[in-house]
Design a protein around this nucleic acid. Structure first.
Lengths: 348, 348
DNA sequence: GTTAATAATTGGAACGTTCCAACTTTGTCA
DNA sequence: TGACAAAGTTGGAACGTTCCAATTATTAAC
């Protein structure tokens, strides 16, 4: 049926008013008489009118469209999926709509999706940059005055807002906790050494270790892919040492799960014979057995906060770069052994 | 700096050609001379031109924009995250860009995001409908001739394409496998009874059970939320029976993980003292301990196939509804006990 | 050297909306 | 009654692009 789409002019004709009036109704202007408003609305429903945002924000060259873009580097990692959900909640309630793309750590893909989002006139961007992203990659965005909030990974030199979690404090707290439980050979396992996040988490580990009696020892850091399989692999290398560790601070929860898998394959019970603590507090951490002691970063919360920072910038007009650090906290569960002493599961 | 955005006319002026020529360059038309093309391209780069898709597909009222929308009901479930990744890969390589939104099982939210996507002129939609979605909810879309592919959950009566996995065959195969291993008290655990997916998976279980010597027994199906916590809960109820089961076919992998947690909490070793098989084959299934025997549905593959179905419809012009069933297969790992007999881990 | 064909380029109209300034209607007050 | 204000409505221009028909420049054919 209806060949061409129904436009504001069709509505105007059918309602016996001018297109300007229909436009005013669309923007809920107080200028229009109540009775005309209801009539116009009725006609719109009847004819199945759909608003054409493309045409609209073509005219209002100043205000950009109501789209915000979110670019993540690994959507299969549930951390990012939850982050996206967090962004979505606040963005939706502000009347914006989310545009999500996954780069799979590819810089080329990242460039493509960012370009595509610009073409569609996004009002702002939340980006968890692919590995190897540099400040120049973001240059065009800041030149065009498009608000950007970087999450998870910061990029030195880029004049944009960022929101990262307090990686240093997280691993620091983890080491302190394990040391208080009596461990001295504590390993740092997992993660790729060439990333800023790795450096920060390792830094917290190192600083805390050097305060212990045994001090920081280089051979106790064993890196690997930041995945479950990487954790299995790294643990194997750690256990092959002459004096293997009795505890591990892991780069993230995925690695920690891998470490637990590896321990069990060796008939070592995580949380009893060996302490492991993760980082991120992904949703599975609390339900797995043993429940994972980890550093909580609340991915949904980060998403929400990032979205708020972005909206603030968008509304301010002048994009004022702002750096925030999201605080983290240690969640003591079972995998560190602290709760195993008593059956009553007292939290340390 | 640059107050107004740079348009095709600015480029034309700077390159000494007409706006029409610039437009032809943009669409890579063979009509334009090679030397002019390179000059225009150079100027575009120099002035930092960004294409305005809104304006473009305002003019070409026939062809819609190069956006495809994807609507999922639970992005925190890694099944859907992977599905989205699958869609993204094929959609991107076809020059489209993905527009993802999460409904969190809310019908209202679903209506909002679909409306929003229409306003932005999506070319097509891939929808995993929220629980309780009805055919009327999709009516406006089919009336407007917007191609839609339903995934995971089909909606009876909606005249749109769908791609669901062969739920019946999956649980049927699972039961057959467990029966062959000597189990007779096999439970069906997890899932909400009011969903089509539940009915199909239960149906496969029932049909397979009635072919066994012990037959189908109503009390052996125990439902719960389709989550890890739901699995723990359902297992507790199952084990409280006078004659508890010795094996479980689970509604999905999340439930299966919960069942394993519950078993271990009772000092029952999954894969040794009790057999469990899941459904979905999420990414963690193969790395967990014990590795989960499950029905593989390949979420990324489903996403890719759905995207292909959608693109076909978009290119065809006439949206021809097509229903497809994605085949599944049983992946035998450790949690069913089949591989535990020999240390060599032979696959049954 | 003219004509025809081909290659390359072009100005104007159109897409669906919003903004602006102008207009009409109605009501109020002296 | 006239002047003025307030409330409501309106036509036209503009946004940045693509399409169309028309134009000019170039080459080929006789």
């Amino acid at each position: 049926m209806g060949k061409g789409r129904v436009t504001v002019i069709d509505i105007a004709k059918a309602a016996g008013v001018s297109k300007s009036t229909v436009s005013l109704v669309l923007q809920a202007s107080p200028l229009v008489n109540e009775s005309t408003r209801t009539k116009v609305n009725a006609v719109m429903r009847e004819l199945g009118y759909v608003y054409n945002r493309g045409a609209a924000n073509l005219r209002q060259a100043n205000a950009r469209s109501k789209i915000i873009g979110i670019v993540v580097n690994d959507l299969t990692n549930s951390f990012f999926a939850e982050l996206a959900v967090g962004v979505d909640t606040v963005v939706q309630s502000a009347g914006f709509v989310q545009f999500l793309s996954n780069t799979s750590e590819s810089i080329d893909r990242q460039r493509e999706v960012i370009a595509s989002m610009r073409e569609h006139g996004v009002s702002g961007l939340i980006i968890s940059p692919a590995r190897g992203t540099e400040a120049v990659d973001l240059k065009p965005l800041v030149m065009a005055g498009i608000p950007v909030v970087l999450v998870v990974r910061n990029i030195p030199g880029a004049k944009v807002s960022s929101l990262v979690s307090d990686n240093h404090a997280g691993t620091y707290a983890a080491v302190e906790h394990l040391a208080a439980l009596g461990h001295s050979r504590i390993a740092f396992v997992g993660g790729f050494p060439d990333t800023a996040v790795f450096d920060e988490r390792l830094g917290g580990y190192r600083d805390a270790m050097s305060k212990t009696s045994s001090g920081f020892r280089d051979e106790l850091v064993v890196s690997s892919a930041p995945s479950r399989a990487g954790g299995v692999d790294a643990l194997a290398r750690a256990m092959a040492m002459p004096e293997p560790p009795t505890a591990a601070v892991c780069f993230n929860d995925a690695v920690a799960f891998g470490v637990c898998d590896g321990l069990r394959a060796r008939r070592i019970e995580p949380g009893k014979d060996f302490a492991v603590v993760g980082f991120d507090d992904v949703i599975e951490a609390k339900t797995t057995v043993p429940a994972l002691t980890t550093i909580s970063v609340d991915p949904q919360g980060i998403g929400q906060r990032a979205a708020q920072m972005l909206l603030k910038q968008i509304n301010a007009g002048k994009p004022e770069a702002e750096s925030a650090v999201s605080s983290v906290r240690l969640i003591v569960r079972e995998s560190c052994g602290a709760a195993m002493n008593k059956p009553g599961r007292k939290l340390a």
